[in-house]
């Protein structure tokens, strides 16, 4: 111990050391997240349109009040929530089913679990391209299968009208998001001790009762985490919209992520774009906190 104390004395304080060790990473994060965030707040309080240079001026909360009194905000907000809720429900439902399957012991389970990483590893843009091909109105596989089975009598342009465009957008988006949710739920299932089930079987509980009264309550903490994560991700959806629908047809898939993009980078109104981005961020954050408190309290009870 003597030697250790001596070394300790020769060295600088732990705080200073922590500062030096983390400085490079913290500086990088500050430069590209903290500074731009403050600038985004600044921009959102200004009239700042690149099409009208020289007219930048401080306008307080005008951008915000403009959005909040405009259907150009409320319509995309509703579309965003429609999309996000449908996607979260689909992702969590399918992921729960797959994780229950993978929680059973059977030969080949490891291979199946590994193959889940295939959709997970596909970038969202390539995923959009893949579904654009699958859903092609003339030659798409989805059309071909539905036609051959006899569900449809002629090929459909599912991306050309509501509500089919929303449904397929949700499916395409969910396809690459299900694997991670599955793995998280599976790790949650694996923490449930097996003897609880055994004693339940002795008590005569059926499969459905075991799921409802043992699995679901014990899985709830992990289920909450997955729901919150997927909700946060889905609310800021952008990539797949860009490639698959560009907000169309007739603005029916115009989510807030797309509104921010068009407002800022097509109309070049950086002030309006920043303020609607701030609104989306605030909504996401508020929802995350609300979910956290609500679901967490539910777990305690």
């Amino acid at each position: 111990m003597q030697t250790r104390r001596e070394t300790e004395q020769k060295e600088m304080s732990q705080g200073l050391m922590a500062l030096l060790f983390s400085a490079p990473a913290v500086l990088i994060i500050a430069a590209t997240i903290l500074v731009p965030f403050l600038m985004a707040v600044f921009l959102s309080l200004h009239n700042w349109n690149l099409k009208r240079p020289g007219r930048e001026r401080f306008i307080g909360l005008e951008n915000y009040t403009d959005w909040l009194t405009d259907s150009d905000f409320w319509e995309p907000l509703r579309t965003t929530f429609t999309f996000a809720i449908l996607a979260v429900v689909l992702i969590v439902f399918i992921a729960l089913l797959i994780s229950l399957l993978l929680n059973e012991k059977f030969p080949g389970r490891g291979v199946l679990r590994a193959l889940l990483l295939v959709p997970w590893a596909i970038p969202s843009v390539v995923n959009a391209l893949l579904w654009k091909w699958l859903l092609n109105p003339q030659y798409g596989l989805v059309n071909a299968i539905a036609f051959e089975i006899g569900i449809i009598t002629e090929y459909q342009n599912v991306l050309g009208s509501m509500p089919s465009v929303m449904i397929w957008l949700v499916i395409a988006y969910s396809w690459i998001h299900i694997p991670l949710a599955t793995l998280l739920l599976l790790s949650g299932l694996q923490t449930i001790p097996g003897d609880i089930y055994e004693s339940a079987i002795v008590d005569g509980a059926g499969v459905w009762q075991r799921f409802l009264f043992i699995t679901l309550p014990l899985l709830r903490p992990m289920l909450s985490i997955v729901i919150i994560f997927e909700m946060i991700f889905a609310l800021k959806v952008f990539d797949i919209i860009f490639v698959l629908t560009a907000g169309g047809p007739a603005d029916s898939t115009n989510v807030l992520g797309w509104t921010i993009y068009t407002e800022t980078f097509r109309k070049l109104d950086f002030g309006a774009g920043s303020s609607v981005a701030m609104l989306l961020g605030a909504i996401t954050l508020a929802l995350a906190i609300l979910f956290y408190v609500f679901l967490d309290r539910g777990v305690e009870q």
């Binding site: 304080s13 994060i29 590209t32 997240i33 985004a40 946060i232 993009y261 995350a288």
Partner: peptide
């Protein structure tokens, strides 16, 4: 290490990811 502000630093690093990339993209560009 045991230093003042440890949990604040960790929280700050994680919280930085809550800001939507789209809103940061505007000033960055």
């Amino acid at each position: 290490l045991d230093f003042r502000g440890r949990s604040t630093l960790l929280f700050g690093i994680l919280a930085s990811r809550l800001i939507p990339a789209l809103s940061l993209a505007i000033p960055i560009v």
